[in-house]
């Protein structure tokens, strides 16, 4: 259990967290780890806050963790990183998309988007803010934002050598999106300094 690692992928329903988790898990399986992951389906997918957990190591028991237990949070949206920050271990890593999506309460004018999310994260954790939306659009479509963030995560965790990630992406995404996603992975990887 002590060598096990836990990642939380968080965002807004429909942002592609599940595909990202699939790429991660396929790589971890190739590297020979025991892997468990947990997703949430159903109502929360309708524009709500969603989280996918991935755990790996020699032997994994629980597919979910509680507060203070994650090694890394990869957040597809800025405010969501703040929402789940208390799931991180002290000294954990944050990879956060520098991208805002209004919640329905913000859209309805009932609340305002919180200020200072990035600064708050940076002052407590090793935080890598990535402009994944801009990078993805530069590659042709914002839809590959998730794999940009995945590339950033691999760099942040120093996991580049556990398997051939580009090969894993090729095997996981639909054929016509392979080039786009490999480029997204490379751009995300390059966006993190470590």
């Amino acid at each position: 259990m002590s060598n096990n690692r836990s990642a939380l992928l968080v965002g807004v329903g429909g942002q592609g967290a599940i595909l990202t988790a699939k790429v991660l898990v396929n790589g971890l399986m190739k590297a020979g780890y025991d892997v468990k992951m947990s997703e949430v389906h159903g109502m929360s997918q309708r524009g709500g806050s969603v989280s996918t957990q991935v755990h790996w190591g020699d032997k994994v028991n629980s597919p979910v963790i509680g507060k203070g237990a994650a090694d890394i949070i990869v957040s597809f949206e800025k405010m969501e990183a703040v929402r789940y920050a208390d799931f991180l271990k002290p000294g954990g890593i944050v990879v956060v998309n520098d991208y805002e999506m209004a919640s329905s309460s913000i859209a309805a004018g009932l609340a305002t988007y919180p200020e200072g999310c990035l600064e708050a994260l940076q002052s407590h954790f090793e935080t890598h803010a990535v402009k994944a939306a801009e990078i993805a659009e530069g590659l042709g479509t914002s839809r590959c934002m998730n794999i940009v963030l995945f590339g950033a995560m691999v760099k942040a965790l120093g996991m580049e050598d556990i398997c051939d990630w580009e090969e894993v992406i090729k095997e996981t995404v639909p054929p016509k999106f392979i080039e786009l996603n490999v480029n997204a992975y490379r751009a995300g990887y390059a966006a993190v300094e470590k």
Binding site: V12, G13, M43, S44, Q45, R46, G47, G48, S49, G66, K67, G68, A69, M79, E80, V82, R83, A85, D86, F87, L88, K89, P90, S103, S104, S105, I106, A111, T112, Y113, P114, E115, G116, C117, A120, L121, S123, H124, F125
Partner: peptide, 15 residues
């Protein structure tokens, strides 16, 4: 478990 409060509150994001 030891947790960190980053001091910023996320607004709820219901479906």
């Amino acid at each position: 478990a030891e947790t960190v409060d980053v001091g910023v509150k996320a607004v709820s994001r219901p479906p």
